Measured scan of single mutants.
Amino acid sequence: MQRVNMIMAESPGLITICLLGYLLSAECTVFLDHENANKILNRPKRYNSGKLEEFVQGNLERECMEEKCSFEEAREVFENTERTTEFWKQYVDGDQCESNPCLNGGSCKDDINSYECWCPFGFEGKNCELDVTCNIKNGRCEQFCKNSADNKVVCSCTEGYRLAENQKSCEPAVPFPCGRVSVSQTSKLTRAETVFPDVDYVNSTEAETILDNITQSTQSFNDFTRVVGGEDAKPGQFPWQVVLNGKVDAFCGGSIVNEKWIVTAAHCVETGVKITVVAGEHNIEETEHTEQKRNVIRIIPHHNYNAAINKYNHDIALLELDEPLVLNSYVTPICIADKEYTNIFLKFGSGYVSGWGRVFHKGRSALVLQYLRVPLVDRATCLRSTKFTIYNNMFCAGFHEGGRDSCQGDSGGPHVTEVEGTSFLTGIISWGEECAMKGKYGIYTKVSRYVNWIKEKTKLT
């Protein structure tokens, strides 16, 4: 034993070699072989497995989906700052455009905790909710729209109204504003409101030439003092309507412009014939205590009207009353817009006519005020429907199939267009061939041609 100890002390290297040989010859039971080890760690190889990531292109799944990435790591994937920024906006807080917040056709661009709407022409605001041009839906104005110097929408209202708090709607500024039905039992019968379409306001006024200088022999019209197929109006439903009495009662109609003036057809009036105007009328054979009678003290036909040349060209006249009318729910003026808007309103496509005229061709006159909704007829169809001249200051309205029309005794009465609950004068009943005849239409004086003249002559002093 002493000898062994001496050998170990003198030859430590020998001992180490012996131990190493023993270990190498022993069977290893701690580690699995290569094949079995792979069965336990069965993990798919990654895209760049075996390579240094710093030297390969980034992978979106590896960089940002398996674990949260930084902007720089995302930049490695896209290799483009702009594309990385677009991805980053949604990656950080989701897609803010998912709810489609942009209105009126706006395009949404996502941002971090926010979004941006790219608005089409005519709109602005956070969600493109603000109209900035009158060309689109009248700028959301209830009545009139004008573009300011910086191309912003400025709404306005006709006389007797003021802008509401929203700067879009119009509200009454006087007790009985024009064009409004205020009798409670008839307010439910107000005709369907007309909503502004998209309009090209630059070209809204037709490029028409008034044929002022045409000389033409007097034409022989049949029954051209021209509501057939209409309905009984309720008291106060058309408070701007008046009836004219002269040699015979209810020979023509008219509309209240203001307390002192009536507008009617020029062919209705004769110099030297006494005319009485009755406002607030409903049943011409009954006294309903809503009527107001006034005498006409002055007749002003349009300066281009000449019955000797043509009885229905420039067929418009103004009547001055001896005493002002007292405005109330049964006696209310009709609204008159400017030339541009009167023309736009007419193009809405349908209007209402009213009167006490004959209820059928050569038949009896109506006792109760009649009204009828009539569609506008395109000019080409209008011209083809008659052998008589249709001037540019006239328009056609009615039904091709016949059966409904204005008729004798309705002449001078109103053709009105309702705009968001307020009625505007767009025409004056003038003439036609018979009444409600198939293929024939009622012919009306186009008020847009005469609004400046009306307003100039009827100013209240």
Score class of each variant (00 low, 15 high):
3 R>H: 07
5 N>E: 07
7 I>K: 14
9 A>C: 13
9 A>T: 10
13 G>W: 06
16 T>C: 09
18 C>W: 06
19 L>K: 02
20 L>T: 03
24 L>Y: 07
26 A>Q: 02
26 A>H: 03
28 C>L: 02
30 V>Y: 15
30 V>W: 14
33 D>W: 07
37 A>N: 03
39 K>R: 11
48 N>Y: 10
54 E>S: 15
54 E>C: 04
55 F>W: 08
61 E>P: 15
73 E>K: 07
82 E>I: 06
82 E>G: 15
83 R>G: 15
88 W>V: 15
90 Q>N: 14
107 S>C: 04
108 C>E: 00
110 D>P: 09
111 D>Y: 07
113 N>A: 10
119 C>N: 02
119 C>R: 00
121 F>C: 05
122 G>R: 04
127 N>Y: 05
131 D>S: 14
131 D>R: 12
144 F>E: 00
147 N>M: 13
148 S>F: 05
151 N>Q: 09
151 N>S: 08
153 V>K: 05
154 V>S: 09
164 A>K: 10
169 S>V: 06
174 V>C: 04
178 C>N: 01
188 K>Y: 13
190 T>C: 05
191 R>T: 09
196 F>N: 14
201 Y>H: 10
201 Y>E: 14
208 E>M: 08
210 I>W: 10
212 D>V: 10
218 T>Q: 08
219 Q>W: 09
223 D>R: 12
232 D>I: 13
240 W>V: 00
243 V>I: 14
244 L>H: 02
249 D>K: 14
255 S>E: 02
257 V>H: 00
263 V>F: 01
263 V>R: 00
271 T>N: 14
272 G>C: 05
273 V>L: 13
273 V>I: 07
275 I>D: 02
284 I>P: 06
285 E>N: 07
287 T>L: 13
289 H>D: 09
290 T>N: 11
295 N>G: 07
296 V>I: 06
305 Y>E: 01
305 Y>D: 00
306 N>L: 05
312 Y>Q: 07
314 H>Y: 09
315 D>P: 01
316 I>S: 01
329 S>T: 14
330 Y>L: 05
331 V>N: 02
334 I>Y: 01
337 A>P: 03
337 A>G: 06
338 D>F: 03
340 E>S: 08
341 Y>C: 03
344 I>E: 10
345 F>P: 01
346 L>T: 08
347 K>I: 03
351 G>S: 06
356 W>I: 09
357 G>C: 14
361 H>G: 10
361 H>F: 09
367 L>T: 14
368 V>F: 06
370 Q>T: 06
370 Q>L: 03
372 L>K: 14
373 R>G: 05
380 A>D: 11
382 C>E: 01
387 K>T: 12
387 K>V: 05
393 N>V: 02
397 A>N: 01
399 F>H: 12
408 Q>P: 12
409 G>S: 13
411 S>D: 15
412 G>D: 02
414 P>R: 00
416 V>G: 04
421 G>T: 06
421 G>E: 06
426 T>C: 01
427 G>N: 00
428 I>Y: 05
430 S>A: 09
432 G>L: 04
435 C>E: 03
449 R>K: 06
449 R>M: 14
450 Y>G: 01
450 Y>M: 02
455 K>H: 14
456 E>F: 09
